[in-house]
Design a protein around this nucleic acid. Structure first.
Lengths: 220, 220, 220, 220
DNA sequence: AATGAATGAGGATTCATTCAT
DNA sequence: CATGAATGAATCCTCATTCAT
């Protein structure tokens, strides 16, 4: 397993640790499952291959996870929570207003923080993206948390910056959509489309934020 | 099968018709395969289910497509070509310059045209998006056509509009990236994320283009 | 197809010609079947492969041969008849006594004649040897003709030469067995075990016959 | 299963036991496979039939033998080794010279010993004979062991007896060939051609050896 | 807790054979 | 006569899951 993978797994374990203490074997199983699912997709991965890669018996997997799908969910579900964690902080708004006087400060903070997180969890994010359309449990969780909480939070943020005149008075969902599109578009290009390129992340982020700020600036 | 699906299939058949005349059974097989693959994903779809849905014997599938993967590729590969067809027109640049005096005209034409195409081919596009990361044949075709041809074309377009002062003099790849992010972000929200919403497409497109144009406008 | 194969097929066609006039396609089918059966065995050969190799449609085979087994039998059955043809000549005994005053003359004539025949029909003989244990129809024919007719003929021959003192007075079936073993043993080595060796057939045959004659010579 | 079959299987298990301990199910699988392969041939035997005959699930076969061919090889390959075991003994020559002062003693010992072995392993030997021409792995092993080791050993033996004047000075390979032909010819008739006959084996062997000894005796 | 042998349903694919053209 | 599309049973093999040890 590559060192990169090691890091991802470490990060992911920190997540699951929050839920429960895992045995040594359990850790190996999760490592192997993440590696396998992200390489071949969930449906094309076999539990026997995962067991083999984890160095445990086939039965051991099912002692810890009732079904193969259970294993998937135990990997992906906590990731979804973590992924949007900053947006559901208790004192999100309070922190926000004091910490980020300008919309671009907010964008800069968010993109840097979430990119760092994504970088440490790429394989699981890849798994999540692929299985979301097929796993109704994940979809439910996704809609519940992202669509509702995160999107609402972002709308609040945008509306806050519209109210003090930093952002043009278009429907807030539009401002959210275009902001998010640009930043996620960058992440997607950076991590999935052309990961092998030698990106100047700082520069690209600045261009992106500058673009968003001008695109959303109040018209004269 | 829903009427929507009927339309997609009709569009897709028009594509394959260009290549070869298909028998009645072949059409049924493709219909069933598209439906099944897009609902469950390629790996989780079984040839027996496809055969049943198509109303043919399982063996019939393999008379027309040597393997299950062949069936997938025969559906997805031509779609990729069609998807980027406008960008590889012979006289793309000539048409472009005379037809679209402004960058926003170009963006508007492209997004409307491609959205119409996508709308008629959603299931296949969904299949394509899902299988791209796992099917190396598709990846190869994708990199060859999209990454090279389309991206280069878009860079040329952007550079053209930069040279006449419509677009700010940032690296052209950045301008391409943010433009594409915004438009694809909209398509993604429209078709996949919240398809059930009652979108005012015209309005959303105008907001998006306005955002892009201001984001890329030369700074005063 | 090798030239050797060409010859075999030619010989085999002469055989089948006795039974019925064959169309051009029929000939091609038989050629392809012989080649395939002898290379992979009957059970492991598919009719579609034979059809392809013969350059005919799959259905064409079944127009001429009701089943795959029919095709096999139509190839092998006539071969069995031909293989032992000399022994069931009408005037076998008459010819024998006048033509071969000594047992070794008889052996020499038989081995040379049958080796020539075998050389021209190796693939079909190989097929026959392999399928005999599994095809009861062939077994029945084999027992009927070989075991009864040929073996009886050979016993008569041996007894004839015993009666005039050329061969030791052991049970005739033993003399037949050892004679046949030595000659077939040679054919087997020559054609199947080590066909690539540069055999001096004349010499080997003489050694073999000399061995048989001394082994069967009356003891002093 | 007949008592005869029971014995064969017992003998065969003794062989495999040397390699590894087998589970109860594994033994049943091997029994069923030997029975089926020898009755219908390898290609015409289905794993489902073998599983049924063995009283196990079809999947169980593939837990122990990766493929159907693996199952075949695990049956046949060790048999080949056993079949020629006496000829590759470490102190073959030493034993030979002291134990068998005459060529006929050697022949008698070998034929009796190998017939006993063959009698206990007929079905596997039948399988081996049938599959040798189609399984390149077996052919390789056969050529390596039989052709090289056994044949060379027999040549050495014959040359030893030629040097002390017991056998005529013909090329040793000829003496080997005719000797082996007569003995194998007998085995073949005894076990495969006419197994139902009431053979007086002792007598037939004596006739055969007497025939060989006279056939190879130095000419006066 | 961990094992791994056992399961049998289901996987993709091939088969011999039929029949409308 | 010849075709080749169509069949569906049968092929070998893999799968997720269970359970006695």
């Amino acid at each position: 397993m590559s060192e990169e993978m090691e890091q991802w797994v470490a990060e992911m374990l920190r997540i699951n640790d929050l839920d429960a203490k895992m045995t040594d074997k359990q850790i190996k199983i999760i490592k192997a499952a993440v590696e396998t699912f992200s390489e071949k997709g969930y449906a094309a991965s076999s539990t026997s291959e995962i067991a083999q890669k984890a160095g445990v018996a086939e039965g051991t997997i099912f002692r810890h996870y009732k079904t193969k799908k259970d294993l998937l969910l135990s990997i992906v579900a906590p990731m979804m929570t973590k992924l949007i964690a900053p947006f559901v902080l208790k004192d999100f708004n309070k922190v926000l207003h004091s910490a980020y006087p300008k919309y671009e400060d907010f964008l800069r903070a968010v993109i840097k923080n979430r990119m760092e997180f994504a970088r440490n969890n790429l394989p699981i994010i890849k798994i999540m993206l692929h299985e979301l359309p097929f796993q109704s449990e994940l979809q439910a969780q996704f809609k519940e948390h992202i669509a509702k909480k995160v999107f609402n939070r972002l709308q609040e943020v945008v509306e806050h910056f519209q109210s003090d005149g930093q952002i043009i008075a278009i429907p807030s969902h539009v401002a959210v959509r275009v902001s998010v599109s640009v930043l996620i578009g960058f992440c997607f290009a950076r991590f999935f489309l052309l990961p092998e390129l030698d990106w100047d992340e700082e520069q690209e982020i600045e261009y992106s934020i500058d673009f968003i700020m001008h695109g959303l600036a109040p018209r004269e």
